[in-house]
Design a binder for these strands. Structure first.
Lengths: 358, 358
DNA sequence: TAAATTTCGACAATCGATTGCAATTTGAAA
DNA sequence: TTTCAAATTGCAATCGATTGTCGAAATTTA
């Protein structure tokens, strides 16, 4: 019995392989009318007799007609597609942003083409070019870590394609932008730590060519300044943005003669996790002997012991904002396009790892 | 100064808005040749003089020409695009699979269109139809939890589009499939727990219309059978596949007169986390008084205390496998298409939460 | 030098849907 | 019954790239 079904399947597949899809011409021919009428009926345009319209729709259904979006898009000059380029699809923050974008675009019947740059400038350029070739209506991008020039983004604008940058943005390009107020968030985080009684706060910073890491450092410095605390170069560790690098930086910091009593892992929760693990290994008590603050509000920060204080970026909301910004700009495209920046205020999530006072 | 730059930008934008992109006809006109030659040159086809080819490429560069993929695809009848439908983009397992697919497809110069069904059958149908309209070459899908019929997938096949199911698959549809050997993995996990000395193992099961959850239950039952342990209906809790439902199920289990001494959260690590939290609340010691095993190897399972025993599904690898399966099938499409199933063997990750003996 | 091959590039059709304009039909008013 | 406007439908061009066919030019061979 099983084998019969299989054979049938195989024949069926072969049969279908070469078969052409039904087009509006097939429908027109069958009904002895022209393709234009069919098109009008399918697009629910006026100027089609109600009776014939019904007939056309019924026939389309019968023949299992599916519109060829390629042809339609080619003719209409728009694809109702948004291209997204992110460093890594499977990084929590980005997959959440994408989910947010998807949610908003789905409602408007838009499609999403997704690429990941893998933090490579070269691949990022290729992705962008592909999206241009695909004639997407809009490109949404968060630049990769080793991006240094932005000719490829300028290209997007030159081709008349809307460009929205989010999170990691090239400041010098005047485009629509959706960003987090990293500076303010960092400032608040460090202020919170100071208020908890930490006096020697170290910073794990990320690659400074990315605006977000510059801003987070700025916030850190501002907080120190506000409380008249000295800035110590040896407490600022560059390029500590993975768990391993965070751990390494921590070992370095904890081998100083004058130890820090808190570490602000401004790069990510992963580096904060690295800090926590090293502290645990060295039997240094968190938060009493060492305070730890991360960045991003990854799910795991809630369940470590102690739980990790961090900063929530409202990533899904950010995605929705990006998409809606585009739709908004589309709707009043009659007037002038003015570069617009939307800044989202992240939220400090105070947890066990910085609660020295309680 | 600032405002001058802005004004310039605005003018520039408006100017670009209405501008047509350069086409092969523009290039042809400029060089006084025909579009066909331009096309051939750009496609690196033979039968173009080396000198003119160079000239064409140079001119294309100068005019900032970008190929219109829509037109090209329409003509060629293939889009070099793969459509992916998953329940949730930002769920770890799926975002990893997508990353894997992306990696493999990028190398072959294929594009990815991504949709999420949000676990809704209705939305899943819409996604699939969109992808059909887009004339994607292949659709990759993991069905949503409330899928009950598969007419929309049959449709994909009817349109002559390659269909690959992964992880959550409709058994009755004969398509290419990439799955995990859930039954075997569950079997091993439960055997491991029994060998650790647990005698009364409860099961948190997922919606049984999904094949993966049926298989995991089967593995659980087989392990009990192997060790001649009784199957107790009250130890099997249906539909416990979120953290909250896992916690709720645990409270229910721990209020029985005859308590289980281990819980296999076959649905996810999140439900295992729920179990762990309830155990902690009730001051029940893990693993000595209660063993816990999850499923999926989420990042956080490593950092809970105790860390959670779980099952790794090699999600990124799974994505690559899916994509490569497609390319492989493409390459030998001269012969018959035979439904093919690739089964990946997941790996039991033994951690603290089940190590009763040590 | 004449004949036979290659090489090169032009021509025109094609992919499928859309749309401005023209032609036809319908129905109502005169 | 005639006239006129409105409602339908048809015609044909268009979107941009690709490709089979064929003639002209260049090159090789006899």
């Amino acid at each position: 019995m099983q084998s019969i079904v299989e054979i049938y399947f195989v024949i069926f597949t072969i049969y279908m392989r070469g078969k052409k899809r039904t087009t509006i011409y097939d429908i027109a021919e069958k009904l002895n009318i022209t393709a234009s009428s069919v098109s009008r009926a399918l697009n629910n345009s006026s100027y089609v007799n109600e009776a014939t319209k019904k007939l056309i729709l019924k026939t389309a259904e019968e023949l299992n007609y599916k519109r060829n979006t390629l042809a339609s898009n080619l003719r209409k000059g728009q694809t109702k597609t948004i291209g997204v380029v992110v460093p890594r699809i499977n990084q929590n923050f980005f997959s959440n942003v994408i989910a947010g974008i998807e949610e908003a675009t789905y409602q408007k019947n838009y499609n999403l083409i997704i690429c990941q740059s893998n933090e490579s400038h070269e691949k990022e350029i290729k992705c962008v070019n592909t999206l241009i070739n695909q004639h997407v209506d809009c490109i949404v991008i968060s630049v990769s870590v080793d991006s240094n020039d932005y000719q490829h983004l300028q290209n997007v604008l030159d081709q008349g394609i809307q460009l929205i940058q989010f999170d990691r943005v090239a400041d010098e390009l005047e485009t629509l932008k959706v960003i987090n107020d990293n500076e303010q968030a960092s400032f608040e985080a460090v202020c919170h730590m100071i208020e908890q009684g930490y006096k020697k706060i170290a910073l794990l910073e990320g690659p400074q060519n990315l605006n977000i890491f510059r801003q987070r450092k700025e916030g850190y410095l501002n907080a120190l300044k506000k409380y008249n605390m000295p800035i110590r170069e040896e407490f600022i560790i560059a390029n500590a943005w993975t768990k391993e690098l965070g751990a390494e930086a921590t070992r370095k910091l904890l081998s100083l003669t004058d130890l820090p009593d808190a570490i602000f892992a401004s790069t990510s929760d992963f580096s904060a996790l690295g800090v926590l693990e090293v502290a645990n290994d060295l039997a240094i008590k968190v938060p009493s002997e060492l305070g730890i603050c991360g960045y991003s509000n990854e799910a795991f920060t809630e369940i470590t012991s102690p739980s990790i204080t961090t900063i929530d970026q409202f990533s899904v909301y950010m995605g929705k904002t990006v998409a809606n910004l585009y739709f908004q700009e589309m709707e009043n495209n009659d007037t002038v396009v003015i570069p617009k920046i939307i800044s989202i205020k992240p939220k400090l999530m105070v947890r066990g790892s910085t609660l020295k006072n309680s």
